[in-house]
Design a protein around this nucleic acid. Structure first.
Lengths: 216, 216
DNA sequence: ACCTGAACACCGTTCAAGT
DNA sequence: ACCTGAACACCGTTCAAGT
């Protein structure tokens, strides 16, 4: 909208505009041409700062990952792990586009480093050997990614009245012969598609399994 | 390519063609117009069978989920859980488009039922109460989803020489002051981005946590 | 019902050109 | 270097029409 004066374009401004458009219009509706229009420039102006659309995606994701809170230092290591995982989940919930950006392309090296450093440090300090620390980090990260992505999608489904109605109808029409347990547990299943409690349940399972392997 | 004779179009044929195109050309390059061209019909012919592109996506995903193996009945319940989770992961690895289809949109009701029924039955038979069974199912499913999606993306990154070179360069240029643990554990981190061992490690953590809560 | 053909309102990206 | 403008090769989907 607001026509930008010449020579005021910058990577930061483009990233911020792209991010705002993703937040307001949804990640799917996002386009390079939309960003350019918002900035009052031609689509090709962006190519001075980014090699292509994916490059801009990476930059937006990088910007969001920078908002991750630091690891608290005055609590036990399981609580530190909990804090890191919850922090990533909350950031994804606050900015649903982050979930899509994380799910669609692998992290650039420095982003991996930023996420990994805190968690790896905690695990090493707790006495885990290098391989176990690395394996545990990947397990925790992929759990947060999968659980939160799923949660966000189910929440979106519930907000769309038409889709939600279809889902309810299908679930209610399920044959109790073919799917006895699903029919019996339908209320519980619909209650466990997301939420703090569900997330913490899975996280605690992992931490409990980890406790068994805790070095002296 | 092969011009299809009139009146031989069907949902099944369209789904199969769409699936084959996703497998051969990659999910990103997939388009309705591509499917139509492959079938030798106009793009609009598909709209007789599917309401829109997402509808076709759902049908392809549904078709793939039908390939999930049955739950083995002659082993302990933890081994049954393991079999179900490994089965879903293997299906995703064999058909990477499934990973993208699962990550991008929530399951239709009957698909949820098909995945959930086996696992929920196992957990109920093991003596878990309805809520714990439902929570555990969601936890396991989202873990498999997150871990395997991540694994597939990292594997793709390694196959692309240019992207892989950039990633290595970034990791090697990381400051040992800012990221001491990442620099120290770089070899372990790169070894734990995927593979059977990594997947089973996380799965075992969850099962171990579950064992603690096993009802008598 | 099943399918066509033209059209609409978009895309990301290349290329040549301007400053 | 920074940005424009025209063009290319696509998209999903609507609409009116044919059988």
């Amino acid at each position: 909208m607001g026509r930008t004066p010449r020579n005021t374009l910058s990577s930061e401004l483009i990233v911020r505009t792209a991010f705002e458009l993703m937040e307001s219009k949804g990640t799917d509706a996002f386009s390079l041409r939309g960003v350019a229009a918002e900035l009052g420039v031609g689509p090709m102006a962006l190519y001075t700062y980014f090699r292509n659309k994916d490059d801009l995606y990476d930059a937006v994701r990088d910007h969001l990952m920078g908002l991750l809170p630091a690891v608290p230092q005055d609590v036990s290591w399981p609580d530190q792990v909990r804090a890191v995982c919850r922090g990533l989940r909350l950031l994804m919930l606050q900015h649903p586009c982050l979930a899509q950006l994380l799910a669609s392309r692998p992290l650039a090296g420095h982003e991996t480093a930023r996420v990994a450093e805190g968690l790896l440090g905690v695990l090493r300090a707790a006495g885990f050997d290098p391989e176990t620390a690395a394996r545990t980090h990947t397990t925790l990260f992929t759990y947060v990614l999968g659980a939160t992505s799923w949660e966000i999608q189910m929440a979106a489904e519930r907000r769309d009245p038409e889709a939600w109605r279809r889902l309810r109808t299908t679930m209610e029409s399920l044959s109790a012969r073919d799917f006895p347990t699903v029919v019996e547990l339908a209320p519980e299943l619909s209650r466990t598609t997301g939420g703090d409690e569900q997330f913490d349940y899975g996280l605690d399972l992992l931490l409990e399994g980890l406790r068994v392997r805790t070095p002296s």
